[in-house]
Structures are given as structure tokens and as C-alpha cells.
């Protein structure tokens, strides 16, 4: 359980604002911090990591005090049993993939863990290479593996998938879910991508100008349009084409292109690039194992 109750002044694009967060995060959850850029998501992550110091408040994790302004306690980042994946990954350029992981170990003798992580993240082939020679997705996997080498209780990820293409993203989401479960982590990640949030997280913490405006499941958060559909996805309109008297809307849901027939009125209200909810409740979807 992570109990956060902190405040801090931040310098934003439109002047100063206060980051005020009072929230409890359950153990073992995968939480997404969602919100516009400059809302304080990364700052909150850095405060949890101990890289930024709040002005007031308290952070308590499983009974251990990480920060308490009244008692003057600020636990060093290294003592918090956390791992952080930075937006630019922060891989050490002078070390090979394997050495990056070994350096991260709390106990340098535990090379078995390194072997295990290299295997889980499918990095054995690359372990002798330097980070600069790897692709973005590979670097991301190394960063994740290196974070896990710390055997953290809490994993913090700052927009871990934003620099990758769609295909790689999907693969890495699967890796992320896998390790989140396998290593019994409490994971907090920053993301803008609604699809990603749906797929990954248990709860979404929505920040606006430094304030938590909601803390809900992704479904409750993003399907607030009073839709009671049982079968629904969000996607992006790619194309609107007219066929005789009907319109066909092509919607990209995750990586799948779905064509939906709509009437003239609905089509008028849509433009290419709109985010839409595709839902249905009048038929039974067929499920087949693939």
C-alpha cells in the first residue's frame, strides 16, 4: 500500500502551480498517471522515486515512511526498493547490456537473476552489445530488465512506450504485464495512450494542473459517455467513405482496422482523426481460440 499525501510548487508553462496529491494506491496494482503534459505526472513519479522533494506531506509505503516533512524524513532514492525506467531509458552507454544489468544488482553475485531477466526479456542474443547499437524497442527492454534487476517493490515508468512504433508498443505492453505479474510489483506508469491504459492498468489517476481529478478503472474513466454497451472499444477514425446511401467509417482500434456502417447523420458529425467509441449490444460476439 502506498499512501501519498504531498504538495509541492511546480514551474509550469503557464506559471507556477501546486501539485497536490492525496491518494492511496493498493499493493500489486498497475496504475497509470494520465493527464495533459505539464499536469505534474512526471513530477509525482520523481517525488515517489525520491529524486524530487515535496514541500509538505508524507509518503508511506507498507508502513515504512519514505517522506515526512514534519519529522524531516527523506529516504534516499536508493533505499526505497524502487526501480525507475526513465523516458530516455538512462542506459549506461559505456556498459554492455549484461553489464548494465549487473551494475544494477544490489548483490553483484546474483548473476543468475541477470540470466533469468535476459531470458524473460529475450535479450540473450544482445547481452554483449552496447545500448547505442540497439533499436528503441530493444533499449526499452534492457531498461525494463535493468529495473527488475533491482528486485523492486515498486516499479516507476515515465512514458515507457512513447518513443516506439505501434507494433513494438504492443509487444512491450505484453512484456510489461508479464513482469508486473511475475515479479509481484506495484507499478506506476505515465501514459497518454488510451489504448495502452486500457490494456495495462487497473486504475487511472487523472491529473489536471497538479490536482487529482479522478482515480478510477480505465473503463469508468474513458467510457463516461453514458454508454451501457457490453462490447466496446475506443479507436481513431482513419477514413470516412460514402457508399450509395450509407457511410463506411474505418476505425483503428489498437492495431486492428474495423469498418463500421453508419447513417448520414452520424457520419456528418465525424472527421478523420476523431477518437471514437465503437460499441454494440444487439448481438452476441463470437469468441474463438486462435
Amino acid at each position: 500500500m502506498i499512501d501519498i499525501n504531498i504538495s509541492r510548487q511546480l514551474e509550469g508553462a503557464e506559471g507556477r502551480f501546486s501539485l497536490v496529491v492525496k491518494q492511496s494506491i493498493e499493493k500489486g496494482q498497475l496504475i497509470t498517471l494520465y493527464g495533459d503534459s505539464g499536469a505534474g505526472k512526471t513530477s509525482l513519479l520523481r517525488i515517489l522515486a525520491g529524486l524530487m522533494v515535496p514541500e509538505k506531506g508524507q509518503i508511506k509505503v507498507d508502513g515504512q515512511i519514505w517522506f515526512d516533512s514534519t519529522q524531516g524524513i527523506h529516504l534516499k532514492p536508493g533505499k526505497r526498493h524502487i526501480a525507475m525506467v526513465f523516458q530516455d531509458y538512462g542506459l549506461f552507454p559505456n556498459m554492455t547490456v549484461r553489464k548494465n544489468l549487473i551494475y544494477a544488482l544490489a548483490n553483484p553475485a546474483k548473476t543468475k537473476l541477470v540470466d533469468h531477466l535476459l531470458e524473460v526479456m529475450e535479450l540473450q542474443q544482445l547481452q554483449g552489445k552496447r545500448p547505442a547499437t540497439l533499436s528503441g524497442g530493444q533499449q526499452q527492454r534492457v531498461a525494463l530488465a535493468r529495473a527488475l534487476a533491482r528486485q523492486p517493490k515498486v516499479l516507476l515508468l515515465d512514458e515507457p512506450l512513447s518513443a516506439l512504433d505501434d507494433k513494438m508498443r504492443q509487444k512491450l505492453r505484453d512484456y510489461l504485464l508479464k513482469v508486473h505479474r511475475q515479479f509481484d510489483l506495484t507499478t506506476i506508469l505515465v501514459s497518454h495512450d488510451v489504448g495502452e491504459i486500457f490494456k495495462l492498468s487497473n486504475k487511472v489517476m487523472h491529473l489536471e494542473n497538479g490536482q487529482v481529478v479522478s482515480y478510477k478503472t480505465p473503463l469508468k474513466m474513458f467510457s463516461h459517455r453514458h454508454f451501457s454497451g457490453k462490447f466496446q472499444f475506443t479507436g481513431e477514425v482513419l477514413e470516412i467513405s460514402k457508399e450509395d446511401v450509407i457511410f463506411i467509417i474505418s476505425v483503428l482500434i489498437d492495431n486492428h482496422l474495423v469498418r463500421v456502417i453508419v447513417d448520414h447523420e452520424t457520419a456528418e458529425g465525424l472527421t478523420v482523426g476523431d477518437r471514437v467509441l465503437v460499441a454494440s449490444k444487439a448481438f452476441n460476439p463470437v469468441i474463438k481460440k486462435v
Binding site: 529524486l51 532514492p77 524502487i82 526513465f86 530516455d88 538512462g90 549506461f92 559505456n94
Partner: peptide, 26 residues
């Protein structure tokens, strides 16, 4: 990049360890 130093800090590495293994070699 700041993240190199911060990564090392989060990993509980000392001033000298970070200097010797991360900063100077780079």
C-alpha cells in the same frame, strides 16, 4: 543525460561508484 546519474542514484550507488563506473567512462 541526467537520467544516467539518477539511474545510478535510484540503484543505491555511492558517489564514487557512480563517478568511477558511470560518469568518468562516459
Amino acid at each position: 543525460p541526467k537520467s544516467l546519474l539518477e539511474s545510478s542514484r535510484v540503484m543505491d550507488k555511492s558517489y564514487f561508484s557512480t563517478l568511477l563506473h558511470v560518469e568518468l567512462p562516459n
